[in-house]
Design a protein around this nucleic acid. Structure first.
Length: 795
DNA sequence: GCAGCCCTATTACCT
DNA sequence: ACAGGTAATAGGGCTGCG
């Protein structure tokens, strides 16, 4: 019978050298199903040396008799666009492939083995055009009494391969979110000594539950209760914040210690860490929302509360936040324990809210890229692009290259113009639409169209990049060009469909998530091309893209100037010019005609302020919004107080055009700070630990703060953000810092924040208007104070 | 011993 | 573990002072 299902998760098992693909899905009636497919043979390729005899290699392998080789097939494929002869080696057991590939490489006439590094489950998805988070139809028999002990409504045996069907909707899914609190007085909790004291769970049917230990902090019962709850609710998706790095490893270890089996999946196995460091829970999708925090660069410190605040789920001001250091105190103090419980439940509520905001995107990304939803989040951008490419390579018979370790060789990038410092009125921004992807399309820049210097020019012609002189065939259409054209076309289609869909409807939301996913992959394509870790890395491809980019913008600038439009700034693919609508209109048309790339008039600033520096400016938009770029306001490594002051200064300067008023405001804030009336949180400075503390060549504040945390038992790792404050004392700056949780307000050195935070941030703007840092430094305010006193005494 | 200079390490931004 | 271009701060080495 035919069955239609939406694919949630995939895994494989090997039984007696026979592999089985397990497709976990939800059918149209909402039943949870498992389809077992035993029909698909795994394989890899042997590439034959040019001119060598493939049949001879086939015979050679046959002679040695490899029992797990099922079949050999001589095929024609392409490798970097060039035709190659290859042998497709079908194997009974996918797990022997790496070993066989290694062995066969040594046979005479064999150039190399390829695609032996593609996992069986991914191979299955790619070859059969099966997409996670998408609908499929399959011919399958129901197993009446399955021998499998799996938690689903129905088990099927596949009789055909699945067929992709067009259907955008997502079936109703059961979603469970949870967060945990551990008890520790010795720094970071460790599973062998510290119990879990609270587990807060919520589900998308509105249920909220807390599992809280007794006075003895005996967590065995609550762990059992939690697992029972999960199995009973039987979620399709489990969400949390920091699940892969924190919760699951901790739960795993803790259960081991308590001699419990961590059983939360649909097949009776334990959660296990898999590719890209994601934790896999068989039959369910385990989604760590922390992985999606990177999609929001505005969130500087990637914490649950910051993310929830940013997404408008729960405002920080409306919460009582409790630091990890204080968990034990809150628990031990009966009066405060309820606050801790409330905090924990709120965390889970935040998780459910964020999940709602992100799941559509995650599903669309998974569906587009082809990686199962639980992998796609943990996979770095480069790998997402790569899987999308691999999926496409299969369709055009292009073999997937091996990842080769390469030395880092830098190349020249984009052009940035020096701005015309100071204030400007009515400035329009003209942007090239997706410049790099479009350049790659226009000039057919691709790994498979590149002509190396030793090759003769092809008859069908070639494009030669300016400056760097790299050549690319005009024909045939390159791999990248094909993929990028498809992405751009699809995104346009989605967006026009969105216009016909009611904004706010479910379909609209899904479409919007889809177009965002497409955009993310499109925009990352140039970066991928220049990434030395890329399987399809060919430096000249990226180098030619930037060369054409420089050529394009320099020409655009020339045209603007010839049209009598002064260019006041520009960066990579944008030019900032005086807003003269008719001239700009004409210019846009000329650029499109002569340079073959689309431009779009972007913003028009009523007023814009440029510093002396590139990449740092602030503009006032017609709706009164400030657009701040590169300045301290948007940097995460400045104290909030300095950022707030600078933002207000910019607002006064741009809206009221009164630098004097701004200066006065700065002096007042400095006064407030010295009076200790500025909240402590506004004085914390956050910096990322980019390597292990001992690897630093020079002493640095955040590293010293990190060391103090580690000494007190806190586990820190590379990538963590360290929050610290500067305290009073002598010596170097790094000798006067403390992790913010360890210092008190009275320790803080206000003069540091005056002279090294507020003053420079404000002066960055105000010095353009003749107000120096010294003037801001509060001397006048102090004078006033002193004068008052002298006046008093003098009277 | 330290101010002043210059260079480098470090971080986080822009497109 | 997508690219290069850029700004800004603090550390650290060195010179030269007296």
């Amino acid at each position: 019978m035919k069955t239609r299902f939406w694919l949630l998760d995939v895994n494989y098992e090997v039984k007696n050298d026979t592999p089985e693909i397990w497709l976990w899905g939800i059918d149209e009636s909402g039943k949870r199903i498992l389809v077992v497919d035993r029909n698909f043979l795994d394989y890899f390729y042997i590439v034959i040396v040019e001119g060598a005899d493939a049949e001879k290699v086939v015979k050679e392998i046959g002679k040695a008799h490899y029992p797990l080789v099922e079949r050999l097939e001589v095929v024609e494929r392409k490798f970097f666009g060039k035709p190659v002869k290859a042998i497709k080696v079908y194997c009974k057991n996918p797990d022997v492939i790496p070993k066989y590939a290694k062995t066969f490489r040594k046979i005479e006439g064999v150039k190399e083995c390829l695609e032996d590094d593609i996992r069986y489950s991914m191979r299955y998805l790619i070859d059969n055009d099966v997409a996670p988070c998408g609908w499929h139809e399959i011919e399958a028999d129901e197993e009446e009494s399955s021998a499998l002990t799996v938690r689903v409504d129905k088990v099927y045996t596949a009789k055909s391969y699945p067929n992709l069907i067009e259907k955008t909707e997502v079936p109703p899914l059961r979603i469970l979110g949870f967060s945990t609190i551990c008890y520790s007085r010795e720094g970071s909790p460790k599973p062998d000594r510290n119990p879990l004291i609270i587990i807060s769970v919520a589900t998308n049917n509105g249920e909220e539950t807390q599992f809280v230990t007794d006075e003895n902090k005996n967590d065995k019962p609550i762990l059992e209760a939690f697992m029972n709850y999960v199995r009973k609710f039987d979620p399709d998706i489990i969400v949390g914040f920091g699940l892969n790095g924190q919760d699951w490893p901790y739960l795993n270890e803790r259960c081991k210690k308590l001699r419990l089996r961590l059983h939360v999946d649909r097949a009776g196995t334990e959660p296990h860490t898999s590719v890209y460091g994601h934790v896999s829970i068989t039959g369910r999708a385990n989604i760590d929302l922390l992985d999606y925090a990177d999609e929001f660069p505005e969130i500087k410190v990637k914490t649950l509360e910051n993310m929830a605040d940013y997404l408008g789920i729960m405002k920080i001001e409306e919460r009582t936040l409790i630091e990890d250091v204080d968990f034990a105190d809150y628990w031990d103090d009966k009066a405060k324990r309820e606050t801790l419980k409330k905090f924990s439940m709120e965390n889970t509520r935040c998780i459910m809210g964020i999940a709602q905001a992100i799941l559509d995107f995650a599903m669309q990304l998974s569906n587009l890229v082809g990686l199962p939803i639980d992998h796609v989040g943990t996979a770095a951008v480069g790998f997402r692009v790569e899987w999308f490419l691999i999926k496409h390579a299969q369709k055009i018979s292009e073999l997937v290259p091996k990842r080769i370790e390469q030395p880092y060789r830098p190349y020249v990038g984009a052009i940035v113009l020096k701005p015309e410092p100071g204030l400007h009125e009515n400035i329009a921004v003209l942007d090239f639409k997706s410049m790099y992807p479009n350049l790659m399309i226009t000039y057919n820049l691709s790994p498979d169209t590149y002509i190396s210097p030793k090759e003769p020019p092809p008859k069908s012609g070639f494009y030669e990049a300016p400056e760097v002189k790299h050549r690319f065939r005009k024909e045939p259409v390159g791999f990248y060009k094909e993929v990028l054209s498809y992405l751009i076309k699809v995104r346009d289609e989605i967006r026009s469909k969105m216009k016909k869909t009611a904004a706010g409807s479910v379909e609209y939301r899904v479409l919007d998530a889809r177009q965002k996913a497409v955009k993310v992959i499109t925009n990352a394509s140039y970066g991928y091309a220049g990434w030395i870790g890329a399987r399809w890395y060919i430096k000249p491809v990226a180098e030619a893209a930037t060369a054409w980019g420089r050529h394009t913008i320099l020409n655009a600038i020339k045209m603007a100037e010839n049209a009598g439009l002064k260019v006041v700034y520009g960066d990579t693919d944008s030019i900032f010019i005086k807003h003269e609508p008719e001239k700009i209109d004409k210019l846009s048309k000329e650029i499109e005609e002569k340079l073959g790339l689309e431009v779009k008039p972007d913003k028009v600033y009523m007023r814009i302020f440029f510093t002396e520096a590139k990449k740092r400016y602030a503009g006032l938009l017609p709706d009164g919004q400030l657009d701040i770029v590169g300045l301290e306001v948007i940097r995460g490594d400045w104290a909030s107080i300095a950022k707030k002051v600078q933002e207000r200064v910019l607002e006064i300067v741009l809206k009221e055009q009164s630098p004097k008023k701004a200066a006065k405001y700065v002096q007042e804030t400095i006064y407030e700070l010295r009076q200790k009336r500025i909240p402590y949180r506004d004085l914390i400075i956050w910096k990322t630990l980019t390597k292990a503390p001992e690897e630093y060549e020079v002493k640095a504040s955040h590293v010293e703060a990190a060391k103090m945390l580690m000494e007190k038992g806190w586990k820190l790792s590379v990538g963590d953000k360290i929050g610290y404050v500067v305290v009073v004392g002598t010596g170097r700056l790094y000798e006067r810092v403390k992790p913010y949780m360890f210092a008190s307000y009275d320790d803080v050195d206000m003069e540091y924040y005056v002279s090294k935070q507020i003053a420079p941030a404000a002066a960055r703007v105000l010095e353009s208007f003749g107000i120096t840092e010294e003037e801001l430094l509060g001397s006048k305010v102090e004078e006033k104070e002193t004068r008052k006193l002298t006046d008093f005494f003098g009277a």
